[in-house]
Amino acid sequence: MLDEGMPEEGTSAYGIAQQVIHTGYDSLNPKQHTLYDAVVIPALTKRGEELKDIQIINSNPD
């Protein structure tokens, strides 16, 4: 998701997502937890749904 520019590089959400990747969710402070839960998790959920739809479309015969 980060490779696709979500969240946008240079934003707080991007930095927090990087922190979770490298040091885990438990390394976040309460303010960072709130931002991660409000911005990153919904973006991950949306992207997961998009990928699921693409997989379904690609698995159906023409």
Rank of each mutant, 00 (worst) to 15 (best):
M1W: 02
L2N: 00
L2S: 10
L2W: 03
D3N: 14
E4L: 15
E4Q: 13
E4I: 15
E4K: 15
E4A: 09
G5K: 11
G5E: 06
M6Q: 01
M6H: 08
M6I: 03
M6R: 09
P7Q: 09
P7C: 15
E8K: 15
E8G: 00
E8W: 02
E9F: 11
E9P: 05
E9S: 11
G10C: 07
G10T: 03
G10A: 10
T11C: 07
T11Q: 06
S12N: 13
S12M: 12
S12L: 14
S12E: 15
S12G: 09
S12V: 12
A13R: 10
A13H: 03
A13I: 13
A13D: 06
A13K: 04
G15Q: 10
G15W: 10
G15Y: 13
I16K: 06
I16G: 06
I16D: 10
A17K: 01
Q18L: 14
Q18I: 14
Q18W: 04
Q19Y: 08
Q19F: 09
V20I: 12
I21E: 05
H22L: 12
T23W: 01
G24M: 12
Y25D: 08
D26T: 15
D26S: 13
D26Y: 14
S27F: 05
S27P: 07
S27N: 03
S27E: 04
S27K: 08
L28W: 07
L28H: 12
L28F: 09
N29Y: 01
P30C: 03
P30Y: 03
P30W: 02
P30D: 04
K31C: 00
K31N: 06
K31M: 07
K31S: 11
Q32L: 15
Q32S: 11
Q32C: 13
H33G: 00
T34D: 10
L35N: 02
Y36E: 07
Y36I: 13
Y36N: 04
D37P: 02
D37F: 05
A38Q: 13
A38N: 09
A38F: 03
A38V: 00
I41K: 12
I41Y: 01
I41P: 00
I41N: 06
I41R: 11
I41E: 01
I41T: 13
P42A: 01
P42F: 00
P42V: 02
A43K: 00
A43S: 07
L44D: 00
K46C: 02
R47Q: 08
R47C: 07
G48Y: 04
G48V: 03
G48H: 04
G48E: 04
G48C: 04
E49W: 08
E50Q: 13
E50V: 10
E50C: 00
L51N: 07
K52F: 07
K52S: 07
D53G: 06
D53E: 14
I54A: 14
I54Y: 14
I54D: 07
I54Q: 15
N58Q: 11
N58C: 08
N58V: 08
N58L: 14
S59D: 15
D62F: 13
D62A: 08
D62G: 12
D62N: 11
